[in-house]
């Protein structure tokens, strides 16, 4: 890991004042030129950041620490029945928090992500923004399309863990297990900029396919931080589950995962099914026909 300067931020305004860019922008190099020279990047739990820096894939000049921003780890109910998950809440918190428990698919996904040691440090915001696990992307010896190169090496190379949907231009799968569950619940993401202004967007639309931009997985802008994820009020009688298939029974990345949210009517019949596949595409992949089919079948 290369040396860097360290800044403790007390607010999102200080993040922008420090000139922070996104990790994605900090990693792009085209024709030998870095998109951002001497980048400043933000750190929450720091798990993915340290991994990228230890591999020398990312060499920031400065790191802005978000951990000191007060209240950013709170999980709290809101008026109207929404649940607000602070971006600095750890994955371990999501697995056990009583307010998250009704969103069973999310609690399941959190409980089964990574290892206990990592879950105790990794944050919700960092989990959603982590870079993909593709071994060509993670190799300093492969200047792949996601890092500003010309080629997606997965197409002609080793690709057994790569995307089976929507992989035109780059075959990564989205690395966040939490995102699979959150998208199934139609969660929204809240971003805060320098002026403490907040914008909110559907999490599903926050993620970016390689055909739109192969250099980033999401729509985070320079100087912005993820401040929260918002879960809509659960419909009465809603049930959910998240299942993960990995190669190992202990901690491992999923080779496939799925989150299902079912909404039933007063008679217990399924009226709506939300089915989202993880580790299948460069973004969490909504299986629309499966969702529609489940709803129709249960109703008959």
């Amino acid at each position: 890991m290369r040396p860097f300067e360290w800044i403790e931020a007390a607010s999102s305004a200080e993040v922008t004042a420090a000139g922070a860019t996104t990790v994605a922008d900090a990693m792009v190099m085209t024709n030998g030129h870095r998109k951002v020279s001497d980048p400043t990047v933000v750190k929450a739990g720091g798990i993915d950041l340290l991994d990228l820096m230890k591999e020398e894939l990312l060499q920031p000049r400065r790191i802005v620490n978000l951990r000191g921003i007060a209240g950013l780890d709170k999980i709290a109910g809101q008026e109207g029945g929404r649940l607000r998950l602070g971006a600095l809440a750890t994955v371990a918190q999501l697995a056990v928090d009583p307010l998250v428990r009704p969103y069973a698919a999310l609690a399941d996904a959190a409980r089964n992500a990574a290892s206990p040691q990592i879950r105790n440090v990794a944050t919700l915001g960092g989990n959603l923004l982590q870079r993909p696990r593709c071994w060509y992307f993670r190799s300093v010896h492969h200047h792949c399309v996601r890092k500003g190169g010309e080629t997606c090496f997965a197409f002609g190379g080793e690709n057994q863990y790569h995307a089976i949907f929507d992989h035109r231009g780059c075959a990564i799968v989205h690395p966040s297990t939490l995102a699979t569950a959150l998208v199934a619940f139609d969660a929204r993401i809240e971003l805060t900029d320098a002026a403490e202004a907040k914008r909110e967007t559907a999490l599903e639309e926050f993620f970016v396919l390689p055909t739109r931009d192969p250099h980033r997985e999401n729509d985070l802008r320079a100087g912005e931080i993820v401040s929260a994820v918002l879960l809509p009020k659960l419909a009465a009688g809603a049930r959910s589950a998240h299942l993960k298939q990995a190669e190992k029974e202990s901690f491992d990345w999923p080779i496939a995962d799925v989150a299902v949210v079912l909404e039933a009517d007063a008679q217990g019949l399924c009226r709506r099914a939300s089915v989202v596949l993880g580790a299948a595409a460069p973004v969490p992949h909504r299986a629309r026909s499966a969702g529609g089919g489940a709803a129709r079948q249960a109703a008959q």
Partner: peptide
């Protein structure tokens, strides 16, 4: 491993086990 993948470096932070190779001393 120095990458948070083997947990050999586990210590407690406020009684919670963490991989000490994946957190910075300054933090």
């Amino acid at each position: 491993c120095d990458r948070g993948a083997c947990s050999a470096c586990t210590v407690w932070l406020d009684d919670i086990p963490v991989a000490s190779c994946m957190v910075l001393a300054i933090d």
